[in-house]
Amino acid sequence: MEQQNGINKHDLKLWAYARSSSPRPGVLIRQMQGLLADAERNHWTVVGTSQDMSTGRTLARMGLREVQRAVRQGIANGILVEDVGRLSHEYSTALRVLEFLQDHSAVLICT
Rank of each mutant, 00 (worst) to 15 (best):
V81F: 00
S20A: 11
N42H: 12
Q31N: 11
E82N: 02
G48D: 00
G6Q: 10
I7H: 09
G85K: 11
D11Y: 11
L12T: 08
W44Y: 14
I7A: 04
M1Y: 14
R72N: 14
N77E: 06
S21M: 06
Y91T: 10
R61C: 03
L87V: 10
G26L: 15
L101H: 03
G6H: 12
A16S: 12
A18S: 13
D38M: 08
F100V: 03
Y17R: 02
Q4W: 14
G6M: 06
E40M: 03
G48K: 02
G48S: 01
K9P: 00
S105F: 12
R24H: 12
S20C: 04
T49S: 02
V46D: 03
V81C: 08
K13W: 10
K9G: 02
Q4G: 02
M53K: 13
I109H: 03
T58G: 07
S54M: 03
L59W: 01
A94N: 04
Q31M: 15
N5P: 05
V47G: 02
R61L: 13
G48F: 10
R24T: 11
I75P: 01
L87N: 08
G74D: 01
K9D: 05
I75T: 06
L28I: 08
R19I: 11
V67A: 02
L36H: 03
N77M: 11
V107W: 03
T55D: 14
G56D: 04
V97S: 03
M32T: 08
I79D: 00
G6V: 05
K13F: 07
Y17F: 09
V67Y: 08
L108K: 07
H10P: 00
R41M: 07
T93M: 01
G63S: 06
Q33D: 15
L64P: 03
S105A: 15
L87K: 09
R65A: 15
H43R: 15
I75V: 10
M62N: 13
A106G: 08
L59G: 05
M62K: 14
G56A: 04
V81I: 14
Q73F: 09
V27S: 06
A18P: 01
N42E: 13
S54H: 03
E40R: 07
W44I: 00
R96G: 01
L95Y: 13
L36R: 07
N5L: 12
K13V: 05
H104F: 13
G6P: 00
G78Q: 06
E66V: 05
A16Y: 00
E40P: 00
L12I: 09
A60F: 13
H104M: 05
I75H: 07
G48T: 00
R30K: 14
W44K: 02
N77C: 12
T93A: 04
E99H: 10
L35G: 02
S54E: 06
A37Q: 11
S105G: 13
L87Y: 07
E40N: 04
G78Y: 04
L36F: 05
T45C: 14
H10N: 15
F100D: 02
E2L: 15
A70L: 06
D11V: 06
N8K: 12
L95M: 14
S105M: 14
R41I: 02
